[in-house]
């Protein structure tokens, strides 16, 4: 066993973990969340973070159409919104991907996915999204949140400070999930407590940057 390799990988993991929140502009827990405004939604309305002042907690999830990881989580996001709506939780899904590079991530395709059409193999249900699905055409919102992949989740508390960021859970395959990061974080926040695990490693497809 060559110690240098182990040390090298360990050091790399440490350094990269520090960068994991998204490199230079990484958000921090308890930091005020970046605003976003007038993002076009699949409902042909514009959506701003400030529109959701009634929500006790906002779940911002960067997701997209083409990525199997994103697709695999759509049913779980729909169920989460259904389960937590009455508790004051609002999910807002934001597609940051460049449609010129990935045509499947076009606005028209967003409408199809949100409507429950054209879903492919990665979803059981054909339910439409029960939350807004908006486009970050400039990618400025994804950059402001230092999002790296789809899906990548940021939970904003009542003061719109970041209370949790990272993954939805620990496995793409629903049957293999052991750790419910997002639901556990929401339960804690709704009880007025900080999440036990406020930052997890996001997992998915890298955002398709311009």
């Amino acid at each position: 066993m060559n110690g240098k390799w182990t040390v090298g990988i360990g050091a790399a993991a440490l350094v990269l973990s520090i960068m994991a929140g998204g490199g230079m502009a990484a958000l921090e827990i308890a930091q005020k969340a970046p605003e976003f405004s007038r993002l076009a939604g699949v409902d042909d309305q514009e959506h701003s973070l400030a529109d959701y002042t009634d929500a006790d907690v906002v779940v911002v999830v960067f997701t997209c159409n083409h990525c199997p990881a994103s697709q695999a989580y759509e049913d779980r996001l729909i169920a989460l919104q259904r389960d937590y709506r009455a508790k004051g939780v609002q999910v807002i899904a934001i597609n940051p991907n460049c449609p010129e590079k990935v045509p499947l991530d076009s606005f028209e395709k967003m409408k199809e996915r949100a409507a429950g059409n054209d879903l492919g193999n990665w979803r059981d249900a054909k339910e439409p999204f029960n939350f807004p699905y908006v486009v970050d055409a400039t990618q400025e919102v994804a950059k402001a949140y230092a999002a790296t992949c789809t899906p990548h989740v940021f939970v904003l508390d009542g003061d719109r400070k970041v209370a949790y960021m990272g993954a939805i859970d620990d496995h793409m395959a629903p049957g293999l999930v052991e750790r419910q990061f997002l639901r556990d974080a929401l339960d804690a926040i709704l009880e007025g407590k900080p999440p036990e695990t406020p930052v997890t490693r996001e997992f998915g497809c890298g955002i398709v940057w311009k």
Binding site: L16, M19, C149, I207
Partner: peptide, 10 residues
Amino acid sequence: SEKFGLPGPV
């Protein structure tokens, strides 16, 4: 990602 020390996505 955790075990192989990747911070972000593939």
